[in-house]
Design a protein around this nucleic acid. Structure first.
Lengths: 157, 157
DNA sequence: TATTGTTATACTCTATAACTATA
DNA sequence: TATAGTTATAGAGTATAACAATA
């Protein structure tokens, strides 16, 4: 077999020749599809995906600062300000200026915040169950694992 | 075992309790990570992911109309106008008004368009190989299959 | 000098409404 | 009436620059 002719096995493994072959394209289509469903699922609670992500961060790790959350979610500090203002106005968390470093505010969920986070999570989970109905439990776990593997390169590189 | 206590197996299968458990969250993080890399990979060619998607559509299915492409890529007709204007100005495709129905323009790639599409695809493929370095060939195929399964619900439902 | 929280602003992407020409 | 291509515009989401307070 000549060296310049790709063999069939190589082509089957990673020969990207069309748009649909690109995993990045599939990722985007699936992500947009999910995001629209998640937004629709949260609408009755007057919430949005980004509100849920920030609130869940506070609930899961009480005492986080807004800068911490921004680093964890890869968003700009400037853009979390109106989101926190929204959640605060609903009484879902409270700010506590750190005694040792008065530049930072530690964020703690209120009782209502913890309850609301669970409610929002359940709404989105319902949507996910519909979205993933064609996938079995093993496939769902495998998908989560593969997706994590991809964007964990974000920190390393 | 009491009915109200979820057994361990059920929790392990679909007990979503944190943000990281949500496949939608993992999808978004992975998709954003990919999109930034793809944009960076295409920048030297003065292209963007959406330009590549539209050009590849024309190359893969010559004779498509702009409305066809919008339906295939789930984008608004209004938003493809400046994209086509850009690609046309670079001489990557030509429009041909359909003789039977003079409302529609069929789009055909030029020689340069086909070459440029292949070049852009190669740039993005390079980026994907880096992004997917932790995944083996079988895992990549499995990931593509699972992602397709998710957003194919877009058409049905 | 560096970081936090904040404001103001710009830029990109996407969505909507309306128009014309054709059918 | 319905669709294709187009224009103009509005809205989200995200990015950048600068500021005061604090370390």
């Amino acid at each position: 077999m000549p060296a310049h002719a790709p063999d069939k096995q190589a082509v089957a493994c990673d020969g990207v020749t069309t748009l649909a072959d690109l995993i990045g394209y599939q990722l985007r289509r699936a992500s947009i599809f999910d995001l629209q469903g998640a937004a629709a699922a949260l609408a009755p609670a007057e919430a949005r995906p980004v509100l849920m992500s920030v609130l869940l961060s506070i609930v899961e790790t009480p005492g986080m600062t807004s800068a911490d959350i921004c680093r964890a979610l890869s968003m700009q500090r400037a853009n979390i300000v109106p989101i926190l203002a929204d959640l605060e106005q609903r009484g879902l968390f409270r700010r506590e200026t750190d005694a040792a470093d008065r530049r930072i505010q530690r964020l703690y969920p209120t009782r209502r915040g913890t309850e609301e986070a669970a409610r929002w999570l359940a709404l989105v989970d319902e949507h996910e169950q519909r979205m993933l109905q064609r996938l079995g439990p093993t496939e769902r776990r495998e998908l989560r694992r593969l997706l994590e593997l991809i964007w964990q390169g974000e920190i390393e590189s």
